[in-house]
Amino acid sequence: MDSSQLLGITTFTYLFASFLYIGVLVFRNNKLGSIATGFTAIALLIQTIGLVLRWIESYRLGFGHAPFTNMYESVVFFAWMIIIIYLGIEWKFKTRTIGAFAVPISFLAMSYASFAPLDRGINPLVPALQSNWLLAHVVTCFVGYAAFAIAAALGIMYLAKSSAPAPAADKGSKEVLPSLRVLDDMIHKSMIFGFIWLSGGIITGAIWANSAWGTYWSWDPKETWSLITWFVYAITLHARYTRGIHGKTIAWLSLIGFIAVIFTYYGVNFLLSGLHSYGSN
Protein backbone atom coordinates (compact mmCIF):
# COMPACT_ATOMS: atom_id res chain seq x y z
CA MET A 1 0.00 0.00 0.00
CA ASP A 2 1.38 3.42 -0.82
CA SER A 3 0.71 6.89 0.54
CA SER A 4 -1.59 7.98 -2.29
CA GLN A 5 -3.96 5.05 -1.69
CA LEU A 6 -4.10 5.86 2.03
CA LEU A 7 -4.78 9.52 1.29
CA GLY A 8 -7.52 8.47 -1.12
CA ILE A 9 -9.16 6.37 1.61
CA THR A 10 -8.83 9.38 3.94
CA THR A 11 -10.79 11.57 1.52
CA PHE A 12 -13.77 9.22 1.50
CA THR A 13 -13.65 8.63 5.22
CA TYR A 14 -13.83 12.40 5.79
CA LEU A 15 -16.82 12.50 3.44
CA PHE A 16 -18.51 9.76 5.44
CA ALA A 17 -17.66 11.46 8.74
CA SER A 18 -19.06 14.74 7.36
CA PHE A 19 -22.41 13.02 6.69
CA LEU A 20 -22.38 11.55 10.17
CA TYR A 21 -21.74 14.94 11.76
CA ILE A 22 -24.49 16.51 9.67
CA GLY A 23 -26.67 13.61 10.81
CA VAL A 24 -25.90 14.50 14.42
CA LEU A 25 -27.08 18.01 13.68
CA VAL A 26 -30.25 16.96 11.87
CA PHE A 27 -31.37 13.98 13.96
CA ARG A 28 -29.95 15.19 17.26
CA ASN A 29 -28.62 11.74 17.90
CA ASN A 30 -25.75 11.42 20.32
CA LYS A 31 -24.95 7.81 19.44
CA LEU A 32 -24.33 8.94 15.88
CA GLY A 33 -21.96 11.53 17.33
CA SER A 34 -19.60 8.96 18.83
CA ILE A 35 -19.52 7.10 15.51
CA ALA A 36 -18.73 10.36 13.69
CA THR A 37 -15.86 11.08 16.05
CA GLY A 38 -14.64 7.50 15.68
CA PHE A 39 -14.57 7.68 11.88
CA THR A 40 -12.87 11.08 11.94
CA ALA A 41 -10.20 9.75 14.28
CA ILE A 42 -9.67 6.70 12.06
CA ALA A 43 -9.42 8.93 8.98
CA LEU A 44 -6.91 11.12 10.80
CA LEU A 45 -4.85 8.06 11.69
CA ILE A 46 -4.89 6.81 8.10
CA GLN A 47 -3.94 10.27 6.87
CA THR A 48 -1.10 10.50 9.38
CA ILE A 49 0.24 7.13 8.22
CA GLY A 50 -0.16 8.35 4.63
CA LEU A 51 1.85 11.50 5.34
CA VAL A 52 4.59 9.57 7.14
CA LEU A 53 4.69 7.02 4.33
CA ARG A 54 5.02 9.80 1.78
CA TRP A 55 7.90 11.19 3.80
CA ILE A 56 9.55 7.74 3.80
CA GLU A 57 8.86 7.30 0.08
CA SER A 58 10.69 10.55 -0.63
CA TYR A 59 13.75 9.08 1.13
CA ARG A 60 13.44 5.93 -0.96
CA LEU A 61 13.54 8.11 -4.06
CA GLY A 62 16.93 9.32 -2.89
CA PHE A 63 16.31 12.90 -1.74
CA GLY A 64 14.07 12.85 1.30
CA HIS A 65 12.11 15.83 2.54
CA ALA A 66 9.05 16.61 4.63
CA PRO A 67 5.86 16.24 2.61
CA PHE A 68 4.99 19.96 2.41
CA THR A 69 6.63 21.09 -0.77
CA ASN A 70 4.00 21.52 -3.43
CA MET A 71 0.35 22.51 -3.64
CA TYR A 72 -0.90 18.91 -3.38
CA GLU A 73 1.11 18.16 -0.26
CA SER A 74 0.23 21.46 1.36
CA VAL A 75 -3.52 20.95 0.84
CA VAL A 76 -3.28 17.47 2.38
CA PHE A 77 -1.39 18.93 5.33
CA PHE A 78 -3.97 21.73 5.65
CA ALA A 79 -6.79 19.15 5.85
CA TRP A 80 -4.80 17.16 8.43
CA MET A 81 -4.21 20.22 10.59
CA ILE A 82 -7.89 21.25 10.51
CA ILE A 83 -8.95 17.82 11.80
CA ILE A 84 -6.37 17.89 14.59
CA ILE A 85 -7.52 21.33 15.76
CA TYR A 86 -11.17 20.36 15.35
CA LEU A 87 -10.81 17.18 17.41
CA GLY A 88 -9.00 19.23 20.05
CA ILE A 89 -11.97 21.62 20.21
CA GLU A 90 -14.49 18.76 20.27
CA TRP A 91 -12.63 17.25 23.21
CA LYS A 92 -12.20 20.52 25.06
CA PHE A 93 -15.66 22.02 24.54
CA LYS A 94 -17.58 18.71 24.54
CA THR A 95 -19.62 19.60 21.48
CA ARG A 96 -19.85 17.69 18.20
CA THR A 97 -21.96 20.07 16.17
CA ILE A 98 -18.95 22.05 14.95
CA GLY A 99 -17.92 18.87 13.12
CA ALA A 100 -20.72 19.38 10.63
CA PHE A 101 -18.99 22.60 9.56
CA ALA A 102 -15.29 21.79 10.09
CA VAL A 103 -14.94 18.20 8.80
CA PRO A 104 -16.50 19.09 5.40
CA ILE A 105 -13.77 21.74 4.95
CA SER A 106 -11.19 18.97 5.37
CA PHE A 107 -13.10 16.75 2.98
CA LEU A 108 -13.26 19.54 0.38
CA ALA A 109 -9.53 20.17 0.78
CA MET A 110 -8.74 16.46 0.42
CA SER A 111 -10.97 16.05 -2.62
CA TYR A 112 -9.41 19.12 -4.20
CA ALA A 113 -6.00 17.56 -3.55
CA SER A 114 -7.11 14.23 -4.97
CA PHE A 115 -9.01 15.32 -8.07
CA ALA A 116 -7.76 18.75 -9.18
CA PRO A 117 -5.15 18.87 -11.94
CA LEU A 118 -2.20 19.12 -9.55
CA ASP A 119 1.16 17.42 -9.70
CA ARG A 120 0.83 14.66 -7.12
CA GLY A 121 4.32 13.29 -7.65
CA ILE A 122 7.05 13.37 -5.03
CA ASN A 123 9.65 15.68 -6.46
CA PRO A 124 13.07 16.60 -5.16
CA LEU A 125 13.61 20.06 -3.70
CA VAL A 126 15.08 22.94 -5.63
CA PRO A 127 18.07 24.47 -3.80
CA ALA A 128 16.08 27.36 -2.32
CA LEU A 129 13.81 24.94 -0.43
CA GLN A 130 16.63 22.85 1.00
CA SER A 131 16.58 24.32 4.47
CA ASN A 132 15.64 23.30 7.99
CA TRP A 133 13.37 26.33 8.05
CA LEU A 134 11.04 24.60 5.61
CA LEU A 135 9.50 22.46 8.36
CA ALA A 136 9.16 25.28 10.91
CA HIS A 137 7.79 27.74 8.35
CA VAL A 138 5.19 25.42 6.83
CA VAL A 139 4.01 23.97 10.14
CA THR A 140 3.56 27.37 11.83
CA CYS A 141 1.74 28.82 8.81
CA PHE A 142 -0.60 25.88 8.46
CA VAL A 143 -1.51 25.65 12.12
CA GLY A 144 -2.53 29.30 11.71
CA TYR A 145 -4.45 28.69 8.48
CA ALA A 146 -6.28 25.72 10.01
CA ALA A 147 -7.24 27.71 13.12
CA PHE A 148 -8.62 30.46 10.88
CA ALA A 149 -10.56 27.84 8.91
CA ILE A 150 -12.11 26.66 12.17
CA ALA A 151 -12.89 30.27 13.12
CA ALA A 152 -14.65 30.69 9.78
CA ALA A 153 -16.61 27.46 10.30
CA LEU A 154 -17.70 28.80 13.69
CA GLY A 155 -18.57 32.12 12.05
CA ILE A 156 -20.87 30.33 9.60
CA MET A 157 -22.47 28.47 12.52
CA TYR A 158 -22.98 31.74 14.34
CA LEU A 159 -24.62 33.40 11.35
CA ALA A 160 -26.79 30.35 10.65
CA LYS A 161 -27.95 30.13 14.23
CA SER A 162 -28.59 33.84 14.70
CA SER A 163 -30.64 34.12 11.51
CA ALA A 164 -32.68 30.97 12.19
CA PRO A 165 -35.97 31.51 14.04
CA ALA A 166 -35.76 30.71 17.72
CA PRO A 167 -36.85 27.11 18.34
CA ALA A 168 -40.30 26.70 19.81
CA ALA A 169 -39.94 26.43 23.52
CA ASP A 170 -42.72 23.87 23.96
CA LYS A 171 -40.79 21.22 22.04
CA GLY A 172 -38.42 21.08 24.93
CA SER A 173 -35.65 20.07 22.55
CA LYS A 174 -32.11 20.39 23.65
CA GLU A 175 -30.14 23.17 22.00
CA VAL A 176 -28.16 21.50 19.25
CA LEU A 177 -25.69 24.22 18.39
CA PRO A 178 -23.70 25.82 21.19
CA SER A 179 -25.21 29.06 22.43
CA LEU A 180 -24.39 32.26 20.56
CA ARG A 181 -22.33 33.45 23.50
CA VAL A 182 -20.20 30.29 23.45
CA LEU A 183 -19.82 30.43 19.67
CA ASP A 184 -18.73 34.05 19.86
CA ASP A 185 -16.12 33.15 22.46
CA MET A 186 -14.89 30.20 20.41
CA ILE A 187 -14.53 32.34 17.27
CA HIS A 188 -12.48 34.82 19.28
CA LYS A 189 -10.26 32.12 20.77
CA SER A 190 -9.67 30.40 17.41
CA MET A 191 -8.66 33.76 15.95
CA ILE A 192 -6.20 34.42 18.77
CA PHE A 193 -4.71 30.96 18.36
CA GLY A 194 -4.41 31.40 14.60
CA PHE A 195 -3.00 34.90 14.98
CA ILE A 196 -0.12 33.72 17.15
CA TRP A 197 0.75 30.91 14.75
CA LEU A 198 0.46 33.18 11.71
CA SER A 199 2.84 35.63 13.43
CA GLY A 200 5.22 32.71 13.95
CA GLY A 201 4.80 31.69 10.32
CA ILE A 202 5.63 35.17 9.05
CA ILE A 203 8.64 35.40 11.37
CA THR A 204 10.07 31.99 10.40
CA GLY A 205 9.55 32.93 6.76
CA ALA A 206 11.44 36.19 7.28
CA ILE A 207 14.35 34.44 8.99
CA TRP A 208 14.49 31.83 6.24
CA ALA A 209 14.39 34.49 3.51
CA ASN A 210 17.26 36.29 5.23
CA SER A 211 19.39 33.16 5.39
CA ALA A 212 18.70 32.33 1.76
CA TRP A 213 18.71 35.75 0.08
CA GLY A 214 19.94 38.25 2.62
CA THR A 215 16.57 40.02 2.80
CA TYR A 216 14.08 39.28 5.54
CA TRP A 217 11.33 41.22 3.85
CA SER A 218 11.01 42.01 0.16
CA TRP A 219 7.30 42.83 -0.28
CA ASP A 220 6.89 39.74 -2.42
CA PRO A 221 3.14 39.19 -3.04
CA LYS A 222 3.03 36.17 -0.70
CA GLU A 223 4.69 38.15 2.08
CA THR A 224 2.49 41.15 1.50
CA TRP A 225 -0.69 39.09 1.52
CA SER A 226 0.35 37.27 4.68
CA LEU A 227 0.84 40.70 6.26
CA ILE A 228 -2.56 41.86 4.99
CA THR A 229 -4.10 38.76 6.57
CA TRP A 230 -2.22 39.49 9.79
CA PHE A 231 -3.60 43.05 9.73
CA VAL A 232 -7.17 41.82 9.21
CA TYR A 233 -6.94 39.70 12.36
CA ALA A 234 -5.01 42.39 14.27
CA ILE A 235 -7.76 44.87 13.44
CA THR A 236 -10.43 42.39 14.53
CA LEU A 237 -8.72 41.62 17.83
CA HIS A 238 -8.19 45.32 18.58
CA ALA A 239 -11.75 46.21 17.69
CA ARG A 240 -13.02 43.49 19.99
CA TYR A 241 -10.74 44.44 22.83
CA THR A 242 -11.32 48.17 22.75
CA ARG A 243 -14.74 48.58 21.13
CA GLY A 244 -16.28 45.37 22.33
CA ILE A 245 -17.39 44.23 18.89
CA HIS A 246 -18.90 40.78 19.04
CA GLY A 247 -21.66 38.62 17.64
CA LYS A 248 -22.44 38.94 13.94
CA THR A 249 -19.63 41.44 13.33
CA ILE A 250 -17.02 39.01 14.65
CA ALA A 251 -18.65 36.19 12.69
CA TRP A 252 -18.43 38.22 9.46
CA LEU A 253 -14.85 39.24 10.24
CA SER A 254 -13.93 35.57 10.70
CA LEU A 255 -15.14 34.99 7.15
CA ILE A 256 -13.39 38.07 5.72
CA GLY A 257 -10.20 36.98 7.49
CA PHE A 258 -10.50 33.51 6.03
CA ILE A 259 -10.94 34.94 2.53
CA ALA A 260 -7.63 36.77 3.08
CA VAL A 261 -6.09 33.47 4.29
CA ILE A 262 -7.31 31.61 1.20
CA PHE A 263 -5.99 34.36 -1.05
CA THR A 264 -2.62 34.32 0.72
CA TYR A 265 -2.44 30.55 0.60
CA TYR A 266 -3.95 29.84 -2.77
CA GLY A 267 -4.78 32.95 -4.76
CA VAL A 268 -1.30 34.43 -4.67
CA ASN A 269 0.23 31.28 -6.19
CA PHE A 270 -2.12 31.27 -9.14
CA LEU A 271 -3.00 34.91 -9.72
CA LEU A 272 0.20 36.73 -8.80
CA SER A 273 3.84 35.91 -9.38
CA GLY A 274 6.62 35.81 -6.85
CA LEU A 275 9.00 33.79 -4.74
CA HIS A 276 6.46 31.15 -3.79
CA SER A 277 5.63 30.27 -7.39
CA TYR A 278 6.86 26.68 -6.95
CA GLY A 279 3.73 26.16 -4.88
CA SER A 280 1.58 26.47 -7.99
CA ASN A 281 2.39 23.08 -9.45
Partner: peptide, 23 residues
Protein backbone atom coordinates in the same frame (compact mmCIF):
# COMPACT_ATOMS: atom_id res chain seq x y z
CA UNK B 1 -7.36 53.05 19.01
CA UNK B 2 -9.70 54.39 16.35
CA UNK B 3 -6.77 56.03 14.58
CA UNK B 4 -4.83 52.77 14.88
CA UNK B 5 -7.69 50.85 13.31
CA UNK B 6 -8.01 53.36 10.46
CA UNK B 7 -4.24 53.31 9.84
CA UNK B 8 -4.13 49.51 9.87
CA UNK B 9 -7.04 49.34 7.41
CA UNK B 10 -5.27 51.86 5.14
CA UNK B 11 -1.95 49.99 5.28
CA UNK B 12 -3.61 46.63 4.65
CA UNK B 13 -5.81 48.02 1.88
CA UNK B 14 -3.14 49.94 0.00
CA UNK B 15 -0.64 47.07 0.33
CA UNK B 16 -2.79 45.18 -2.16
CA UNK B 17 -1.85 47.67 -4.92
CA UNK B 18 1.77 46.57 -4.93
CA UNK B 19 0.83 42.91 -5.23
CA UNK B 20 -1.25 43.61 -8.33
CA UNK B 21 0.73 46.36 -10.07
CA UNK B 22 4.22 45.04 -10.88
CA UNK B 23 6.87 46.96 -8.96
Amino acid sequence: VKLALVTLVLIAGTSIIGTVVPQ
